[in-house]
Deep mutational scan, measured.
Amino acid sequence: VLKALERTRQLDIPDEKTMPVLMKLLEEAGGNWSYIKLDNYTALVDAIYSVED
Rank of each mutant, 00 (worst) to 15 (best):
Val1Met: 11
Val1Cys: 12
Val1Pro: 03
Val1Ile: 15
Val1Asp: 04
Leu2Met: 12
Leu2Arg: 11
Leu2Ile: 13
Leu2Asp: 14
Lys3Cys: 12
Lys3Trp: 07
Lys3Gln: 14
Ala4Ile: 05
Ala4Lys: 02
Ala4Arg: 01
Ala4Thr: 03
Ala4Trp: 06
Ala4Glu: 06
Ala4Tyr: 04
Ala4Phe: 05
Ala4Ser: 02
Ala4Gly: 02
Ala4Pro: 01
Ala4His: 01
Leu5Ser: 01
Leu5Val: 03
Leu5Glu: 04
Leu5Met: 02
Leu5His: 02
Leu5Phe: 03
Leu5Gly: 03
Leu5Asp: 03
Glu6Tyr: 08
Glu6Pro: 00
Glu6Ile: 10
Glu6Arg: 07
Glu6Ala: 10
Glu6Met: 09
Glu6Val: 07
Glu6Ser: 07
Glu6Leu: 10
Glu6Asn: 08
Arg7Asn: 07
Arg7Cys: 10
Arg7Glu: 06
Arg7Ser: 06
Arg7Gln: 08
Arg7Phe: 13
Arg7Tyr: 15
Thr8Lys: 04
Thr8His: 04
Thr8Cys: 15
Thr8Asn: 03
Arg9Val: 04
Arg9Gly: 05
Arg9Leu: 05
Arg9Gln: 08
Gln10Met: 11
Gln10Phe: 09
Gln10Ser: 12
Gln10Cys: 11
Gln10Ile: 06
Leu11Gln: 05
Leu11Trp: 06
Leu11Thr: 04
Leu11Tyr: 06
Leu11Lys: 03
Asp12Ile: 05
Asp12His: 14
Asp12Val: 04
Asp12Met: 13
Asp12Trp: 09
Asp12Tyr: 11
Asp12Asn: 15
Asp12Glu: 11
Ile13Trp: 04
Ile13Cys: 05
Ile13Thr: 00
Ile13Met: 04
Ile13Asn: 02
Ile13Phe: 05
Ile13Tyr: 03
Pro14Met: 05
Pro14Gln: 05
Pro14Gly: 05
Pro14Ala: 07
Pro14Leu: 06
Pro14Trp: 06
Pro14Thr: 05
Pro14His: 05
Asp15Gln: 01
Asp15Phe: 06
Asp15Asn: 04
Asp15His: 03
Glu16Ser: 12
Glu16Gln: 10
Glu16Phe: 09
Glu16Asn: 11
Glu16Lys: 08
Glu16Gly: 08
Glu16Tyr: 13
Glu16Asp: 11
Lys17Gln: 10
Lys17Tyr: 08
Lys17Ile: 15
Lys17Met: 11
Lys17Phe: 08
Lys17Gly: 02
Lys17Asp: 07
Lys17Asn: 07
Lys17Arg: 12
Thr18Cys: 06
Thr18Asn: 01
Thr18Val: 15
Thr18Ala: 15
Thr18Tyr: 04
Thr18Arg: 01
Thr18His: 03
Thr18Lys: 02
Thr18Ile: 06
Thr18Leu: 03
Thr18Met: 07
Met19Asp: 01
Met19Pro: 02
Met19Phe: 10
Met19Asn: 02
Met19Gly: 03
Met19Lys: 04
Met19Cys: 12
Pro20Gln: 09
Pro20Ile: 10
Pro20Leu: 12
Pro20Cys: 10
Pro20Trp: 12
Pro20Val: 12
Pro20Arg: 12
Pro20Phe: 14
Pro20Thr: 10
Val21Asp: 00
Val21Tyr: 05
Val21Trp: 03
Val21Lys: 03
Val21Ser: 03
Leu22Glu: 00
Leu22Ala: 01
Leu22Lys: 00
Leu22Gly: 00
Leu22Trp: 02
Leu22His: 00
Leu22Asp: 00
Met23Cys: 10
Met23Lys: 09
Met23Arg: 10
Met23Phe: 09
Met23Ala: 08
Met23Gln: 09
Met23Ile: 12
Met23Thr: 09
Met23His: 07
Lys24Ile: 05
Lys24Asp: 05
Lys24Cys: 08
Lys24Ser: 06
Lys24Leu: 06
Leu25Asn: 01
Leu25Tyr: 01
Leu25Arg: 00
Leu25Ser: 01
Leu25Pro: 00
Leu25Phe: 05
Leu25Ile: 07
Leu25Gln: 02
Leu26Met: 05
Leu26Cys: 03
Leu26Asn: 00
Leu26Ile: 09
Leu26Gln: 02
Glu27Thr: 10
Glu27Ala: 14
Glu27Cys: 10
Glu27Pro: 00
Glu27Val: 08
Glu27Arg: 12
Glu27Ser: 11
Glu28Tyr: 09
Glu28Leu: 13
Glu28Gln: 13
Glu28Asp: 12
Glu28Val: 09
Glu28Lys: 09
Ala29Ser: 14
Ala29His: 15
Ala29Trp: 15
Ala29Glu: 08
Gly30Gln: 13
Gly30His: 14
Gly30Ile: 07
Gly30Asn: 14
Gly30Asp: 12
Gly30Phe: 09
Gly30Lys: 13
Gly30Pro: 04
Gly30Glu: 12
Gly31Ala: 06
Gly31Asp: 07
Gly31Glu: 05
Gly31Phe: 10
Asn32Cys: 11
Asn32Tyr: 06
Asn32Arg: 07
Asn32Gln: 08
Asn32Trp: 04
Asn32His: 07
Asn32Gly: 07
Asn32Val: 09
Asn32Glu: 10
Asn32Leu: 06
Trp33Pro: 01
Trp33Gln: 00
Trp33Asp: 04
Trp33Leu: 03
Trp33His: 03
Trp33Ala: 01
Trp33Ile: 03
Ser34Glu: 15
Ser34Phe: 15
Ser34Ile: 09
Ser34His: 15
Ser34Leu: 11
Ser34Asn: 14
Tyr35Arg: 11
Tyr35Gly: 11
Tyr35Gln: 13
Tyr35Asp: 12
Ile36Asp: 01
Ile36Trp: 03
Ile36Cys: 02
Ile36Leu: 08
Lys37Phe: 13
Lys37Ala: 15
Lys37Pro: 07
Lys37Leu: 14
Lys37Ser: 15
Lys37Met: 15
Lys37His: 11
Leu38Pro: 07
Leu38Gly: 09
Leu38Trp: 11
Leu38Gln: 15
Leu38Asn: 14
Asp39Ser: 07
Asp39Lys: 09
Asp39Asn: 15
Asp39Glu: 09
Asn40Tyr: 06
Asn40Ser: 07
Asn40Ile: 04
Asn40Thr: 02
Asn40Met: 06
Asn40Gly: 07
Asn40Ala: 02
Tyr41Glu: 01
Tyr41Ser: 00
Thr42Tyr: 13
Thr42Met: 14
Thr42Lys: 15
Thr42Glu: 13
Thr42Asn: 10
Ala43Gly: 07
Ala43Tyr: 09
Ala43Arg: 12
Ala43Leu: 14
Ala43Ser: 07
Ala43Pro: 13
Leu44Val: 06
Leu44Gln: 00
Leu44Lys: 01
Leu44Asn: 01
Leu44Met: 02
Leu44Arg: 00
Leu44Phe: 03
Leu44Tyr: 02
Leu44Cys: 01
Val45Cys: 03
Val45Lys: 03
Val45Ala: 02
Val45Asn: 00
Val45Thr: 06
Asp46Cys: 12
Asp46Lys: 14
Asp46Trp: 09
Asp46Val: 12
Asp46Tyr: 11
Asp46Gly: 07
Asp46Glu: 15
Asp46Gln: 15
Asp46Pro: 01
Ala47Asp: 03
Ala47Val: 04
Ala47Lys: 09
Ala47Thr: 06
Ala47Cys: 06
Ala47Trp: 04
Ala47Ser: 07
Ile48Met: 06
Ile48Thr: 03
Ile48Leu: 10
Ile48Arg: 02
Ile48Lys: 00
Ile48Tyr: 04
Tyr49Asp: 07
Tyr49Phe: 13
Tyr49Glu: 06
Tyr49Trp: 11
Tyr49Gly: 08
Tyr49Lys: 11
Tyr49Asn: 13
Ser50Pro: 05
Ser50Cys: 08
Ser50Ile: 10
Ser50Gly: 14
Ser50His: 10
Val51His: 13
Val51Arg: 12
Val51Gly: 12
Glu52Thr: 14
Glu52Gln: 13
Glu52His: 12
Glu52Ala: 13
Asp53Ile: 12
Asp53Gln: 14
Asp53Thr: 14
Asp53Cys: 14
Asp53Tyr: 14
Asp53Trp: 13
